[in-house]
Design a protein around this nucleic acid. Structure first.
Lengths: 354, 354
DNA sequence: ACAGCCATCCGAAACGTTTTGGAAGAACCT
DNA sequence: AGGTTCTTCCAAAACGTTTCGGATGGCTGT
């Protein structure tokens, strides 16, 4: 690999001049610059990233560090999100370092390392927990970061985040179901170790309250992660006497909803919005949602705008800028909760399942 | 951030000793080592990655650099693949640098930079073209890489790759359709600028030949990428007189198949394997495939094993090892085309659509 | 008492950049 | 002529590691 010395030698100047020429400083003669640029091109020179970042320069790389679940697996939503995030990073001319975080090492250690080794300019956190130790950690390390999701103490800690308003979303779903005549609405919740799971559940409770319905503990499934857990929760629910049995089931995400759709027939029910059918809804609107049978009514996560805003925030933070462009004029469905705290509204997509 | 100097000062030893202690060299006293390790822990020390890689050490990072399509978008398959690859990298304790490659910069330049800046130990190539300039380029740069897919001249260039045998796969589909009575089988091909598109098409032709059928140019759709292009190709095909019209359509991938399923009714046909229905098949078996209506018959890409083998190959290459573990005993459906060239068989998943 | 060996440690160089703080010379002014 | 101001360049330091080639001192065996 060609180094800056090779160029300097060939050009007959010092490495200082080469560096300054290539980095667009004004104290180098235009002819000299052109010669140097030409030589650099001929030699296929690219500045060594390590040497450069050792000098305190930016790495033009950001990390995306989502948590793996208990089974050391990535959530299906993660794939979708990562893909879009990669594209958004590409548009910002940034590389994306995907570092999955599993149970193999201490959580704190991983983030300390990510911040301490200087491989990235900033970090995108995901899978925020209600009390997330990573947030004060990164704050104390002075490492630029943006969270996708928010912890309970987001006002006090005052860190930048983008979140999708699960509470308002699910409340909207409850209202919709109530309007369409449902009175016994069940909720299938993800593990409350994740902030968004609580948030969505809060929306369920708020929706019930607004609709004048009371919460029935029999209609709540908790800590749901996979097909198996849905099965254990769904059976007793559907075996309730007719006047206690849910007529609608809100699932915390599309995958849980999928399992419900597949399982309902086993318990003698069919999913859908007709008479004697059980309404089912999801959350995310993953690509398969519209193809399910019946097509899934769900809340669409605005993944693209989420990623755009996340990156705008992070880039501004890295550059020490005040306000990222995308926040100067917040679009529809965008609320600024705090100075750099953004809440996006999910969109209710009504299909055949509810 | 704590540096090696801070530790040396606190421990009262030289930085050499700290470095050697932390890196497990034997020429440091056990007591000294323990003290140093303790101090490093107290100070939350992590060796600076830039300084380390400047010294010629590994970065423990590999790049995944897939191409964007003409519209600067990522293929849907990419998201699925990236997710699995990230997980596989995690298992190897590697970080994954996702660098999308679009039309914004010279292709060669991007790869030269990736190799020249020393940010990664190896590269995983995807979207291999029939003659792919990136392969000789990386070879000449002596940068370890593995390709997902293979170019036409893979024997001559003799580079390591993992590919899914699209030819054998599609041929299998043709055979299956022939067995179930189909005689006029159409094929919808992706742009031949991608190696796998040709490969799959070759499988179609081979399948026809084996079945004793002749290829009909009216039953071939070329250069298909999106819904629109499928529409323009499908109409004339379905408007052929009954004795020329295809009774089965093989799509080059699941998304093309999805469009066909959605469009067939517009032309007065229904997809499926019944009488008077048009059979439709895909390729990939993306998560939505089984939920389509009718469920899609398709060839399942073994994404997980592909990623496993890709990484095993790459890691072995980086470490200069001879044979990666996963190749010592090739599993079923795994063929060694060359020393480090692996061909995996896709699995025919028969569902309702064909 | 001396050579040889082992265990333990360290100074200094090297990796490839960027940046600081000037220096040399030309040009301009008075 | 002498001073000031540009323009153009550069030497050297700094970034934080790893590694090479010893150095030191204690122990062993004769």
């Amino acid at each position: 690999m060609a180094t800056i010395f090779d160029i300097a030698k060939k050009a007959g100047v010092s490495i200082t001049t080469v560096s300054r020429a290539l980095n667009g400083y004004s104290d180098v003669n235009e002819n000299t610059r052109q010669m140097i640029v030409q030589i650099a091109e001929d030699l296929n020179y690219y500045p060594n990233a390590a040497a450069r970042s050792l000098q305190g320069k930016k790495t033009n790389t950001i990390a995306f560090a989502p948590l793996l679940n208990d089974h050391q697996e990535a959530e299906p939503f993660f794939k979708e999100f990562t893909g879009v995030l990669a594209l958004a990073s590409f548009r910002h001319d940034l590389s994306l370092l995907v570092t999955l975080v599993g149970k193999n090492r201490n959580l704190e250690e991983i983030y300390r390392e990510l911040a301490g080794t200087g491989r990235v300019d900033g970090i995108i956190l995901a899978d925020i927990k209600p009390q997330d130790e990573r947030i004060p950690l990164l704050q104390s390390l002075k490492m630029p970061f943006v969270a996708f999701g928010r912890s309970l103490d987001y006002e006090r800690l005052n860190y930048p985040f983008v979140d999708v308003d699960g509470k308002a979303g699910v409340a909207k779903v409850v209202a919709y179901l109530h309007e369409t005549g449902h009175r016994r609405i069940a909720y299938l919740a993800e593990p409350f170790t994740l902030a968004y799971a609580r948030d969505r559940y809060d929306g369920y409770r708020q929706g019930l309250e607004t609709a004048g319905l009371t919460e029935d503990p029999h209609l709540l499934g908790q800590n749901l992660q996979n097909e198996e857990s849905v099965a254990t929760v769904l059976r007793p629910m559907m075996e309730l006497p007719e006047d206690k049995r849910p007529t609608a089931i809100i699932a915390g995400n599309d995958y849980l909803a999928l399992h419900v759709l597949e399982m309902l027939p086993k318990f003698g029910f069919s999913p859908g919005k007709g008479e004697n059918q059980v309404a089912v809804t999801g959350f995310d609107d993953l690509p398969f949602a519209s193809f399910l049978q019946p097509a899934l009514t769900t809340l669409r996560q605005p993944i693209t705008s989420t990623c755009t805003v996340l990156l705008d925030l992070l880039v501004a933070l890295i550059k020490n800028q005040d306000e990222p462009a995308s926040l100067l004029t917040p679009g529809p469905g965008t609320t600024l909760v705090g100075p750099k705290q953004v809440l996006l509204q999910p969109e209710l997509i009504v299909r055949a399942s509810a």
